[in-house]
C-alpha cells in the first residue's frame, strides 16, 4: 500500500495493474501522517465479481473503477463530492463542464487550451474531486480521470459549474440551482446508505449556495471557449 496526497487528504491505495500504477505516481506522498484519511483497494474477489458482471471490462479497468468508487464514496465524509466533468484550471480558478458521456466535455475544455494557451490546464478530464473547506469550494485533480491520464496534482476554487449541450451557436446562461439538481445528481456517485446520502445532499446544498451554475449550448468552434469563459468569469 502506497500513501498519496489527493484532495488535501492522505489516501492509501493498494494497486497492481498498469492504469492505477501510472496514474497515482504524481500523487505519491513521502509524509508520515498520524492518520490516513481514506484507504482504498480492489480485492481479487471484487475484481472478479465486477468482471463477471461486465464481461467487456479488464482487470485493469475494474481496479480503476473499484478504487475510484471507494475514494469518491469516502470523499463525501470529508465535505466533498465527485462531479463527473472535465475541469479546466485558468487564472487561479477551476471551471467544471459536466454532461452525459459523449456530449463533448473534453472537447470543450480542449478548446479552452487552444483559446487561452498554456495558461489553461486540464485539472481533471473526467472526475474532479470537489471539497468545501472553510466556506470555499475547491476542485482537485485525482488519479481517476477517465480514459486519458489528463489530471494534475493541483487545486483551485471552483468558479462555476456548467452543464453543456451541443448547439449550432454558442450561448451561456446562469440558472437557478433547482434547474440543474437532477443533472448534478446524475453526474455524481450516489451512496446507497442513508447516512452518506444525507451527507452528500448536505454537501451539495452548501456547494450550490456558494457556486453559480450555468447551462451552455456550444459548438466546436474556438468561439465556444470565449463564450463560456466570458459567461462564467
Amino acid at each position: 500500500m502506497k500513501l498519496h496526497r489527493i484532495a488535501d487528504l492522505y489516501v492509501g491505495i493498494d494497486f497492481k495493474y498498469p492504469t492505477m500504477t501510472a496514474q497515482t505516481v504524481k500523487f505519491l506522498s513521502d509524509d508520515r501522517p498520524e492518520i490516513v484519511d481514506i484507504v482504498v483497494w480492489a480485492s481479487d474477489e471484487s475484481i472478479q465479481n465486477t468482471m463477471k458482471k461486465y464481461p467487456n471490462l479488464t482487470a485493469d479497468n475494474c481496479e480503476y473503477l473499484i478504487t475510484g468508487s471507494g475514494f469518491y464514496n469516502s470523499l463525501i465524509d470529508f465535505d466533498g463530492l465527485m462531479i463527473h466533468s472535465s475541469s479546466v484550471l485558468y487564472k487561479g480558478a477551476a471551471y467544471l463542464f459536466s454532461a452525459d458521456p459523449g456530449t463533448g466535455k473534453s472537447t470543450h475544455t480542449q478548446l479552452w487550451k487552444k483559446a487561452f494557451g498554456d495558461e489553461a490546464e486540464i485539472l481533471n478530464d473526467d472526475k474532479p474531486a470537489v471539497r468545501i473547506i472553510d466556506g470555499t469550494a475547491y476542485a482537485y485533480g485525482t488519479p481517476w480521470s477517465g480514459k486519458t491520464d489528463l489530471s494534475i496534482n493541483a487545486c483551485a476554487p471552483v468558479k462555476g459549474i456548467c452543464f453543456l449541450e451541443r448547439g449550432t451557436a454558442n450561448e451561456i446562461k446562469r440558472v437557478e440551482p433547482g434547474e440543474i439538481l437532477k443533472d448534478i445528481l446524475k453526474q455524481t456517485i450516489r451512496p446507497s446508505d442513508e447516512q452518506r446520502m444525507d451527507k452528500l445532499l448536505s454537501n451539495l446544498d452548501r456547494l450550490l449556495r456558494m457556486v453559480p451554475v450555468y447551462r451552455l449550448k456550444c459548438n466546436m468552434e474556438l468561439e465556444a471557449a470565449h463564450v463560456s469563459f466570458e459567461g462564467m468569469k
Binding site: 433547482g178 439538481l181 445528481l185 451512496p191 446507497s192 446508505d193 442513508e194 446520502m197 451539495l204 450550490l208
Partner: peptide, 11 residues
C-alpha cells in the same frame, strides 16, 4: 437541497 425538495432512493 438549495431550496428545492427532491426524492431519492437508497439501499
Amino acid at each position: 437541497v438549495a431550496g428545492n425538495y427532491i426524492v431519492v432512493a437508497i439501499g
